[in-house]
Design a protein around this nucleic acid. Structure first.
Lengths: 205, 205
DNA sequence: TTTTATATACTGAACGTTCGTTTTGTATTC
DNA sequence: GAATACAAAACGAACGTTCAGTATATAAAA
């Protein structure tokens, strides 16, 4: 790769980082290409040179978020011995990640739209399903090794995800320290809530 | 009020209801005045005759949500004897309300924007603060009458709100029955989580 | 080694579309 | 006759995207 290509890669990265910050802060629709132009100093044409479209740029970002999440978790999971520690570890990683949760304000604009499914929306639905699966497996591990009693891990996985999502929303106005406290508290309440009593059988619809 | 005024009130109501459904489904920015025109059969001019602006229409709706919430809660609170029952009652009301939570997808587009505060945003921040206060008072009542042990109700109030918010987000793709189960489960885990162990002291920043 | 041609990276105006709002008008009720 | 309720075209602004162009680095030819 020569110097010009290197410079070009840096430009693309700069555009992506600026876009990321704006999407997190303002949301998808409220962020304009002109906003990104002002923030980066790159032209509209340059943005479209590097990314197919505004939606393509956003898709690139959520793929990047997903890769980073998996990488970071893979690097830190071995530090935790118990499922309890892992849950606190997940909360820590979510709290410290400035994006906090892939289903951020921007991504939510795509989530569960009833119009024709865009590529972004498909990808987000897929990530959501994998998050729930990740939660469920973690909880099943805890049950299997006796940390928690038997329980409906599918339903608990949804509660846990709801808790993370809600914490994400409420943390936007908090300091990093208070964000960490919020996530830790959330896990504490959740763990206290599942270690002794199982959920009641849900009635048939 | 004469017949023409009556008819006019009904038109205004029809516009508001159509807008409400569209804002809940698509969000604020993604819903256009044209969308409301198509859904109601009313003209743009008519919408602007009844409402000052698009944002004014939305503000009207969140005020209405707030009033209805308070009214409904006021009508049902006496049915519950314990704080535990009240928490399940709140969850039931949230689950059954098709708007589910004032901080819906649409409202979130205003929440914590860093630009100059609009009237809608001020109102939403105010509602959020009152929800947290409502949660805190409810939990304090439970502590005072011995249902729960002493705890940091301010922090727990935030956890509870996070749980409600997350449940709202995740319930959008669920059936009404599954939504009720999700909310009930959330309260169950929360109650189990707070009735025995108090939160650890949070470290100073 | 120097010159020329080519490919790539980037610019910013133009375009077509969509948006929220205003304006001008008509119909109907009081 | 006046006021109100309503319609729909027009308006100005903002939007995402395309296009014709320039600048520059690199490769190829002389």
């Amino acid at each position: 790769m020569n110097q010009k290509q290197l410079q070009s890669e840096q430009t693309k990265k700069k555009i992506a980082e600026a876009a990321r910050a704006l999407f997190v802060q303002k949301g998808y629709k409220a962020t304009s290409i002109e906003d990104i132009v002002r923030t980066t100093g790159s032209s509209k044409g340059n943005i479209y040179y590097h990314f197919k479209s505004k939606e393509g740029l956003f898709l690139y970002l959520i793929e990047e978020w997903d890769r980073e999440w998996i990488l970071n978790w893979g690097q830190s999971v071995h530090l935790y011995k118990t499922t309890t520690d892992k849950l606190y570890g997940v909360a820590q990683q979510l709290a410290d990640d400035d994006l906090n949760h892939p289903l951020t304000k921007a991504a939510d604009e795509f989530f569960h739209q009833e119009e024709k499914t865009s590529e972004v929306e498909s990808r987000i639905a897929e990530m959501m399903a994998r998050h729930l699966e990740f939660n469920q497996k973690l909880l099943q591990e805890g049950i299997d090794c006796g940390e928690f009693g038997p329980n409906d891990t599918e339903r608990l996985a949804v509660i846990l995800e709801a808790l993370f999502f809600g914490a994400n929303q409420l943390s936007r106005s908090l300091s990093p320290h208070k964000t960490r406290v919020l996530y830790k508290d959330a896990i504490t309440v959740f763990l206290n809530g599942i270690t002794r009593n199982k959920l009641t059988e849900s009635e048939e619809e």
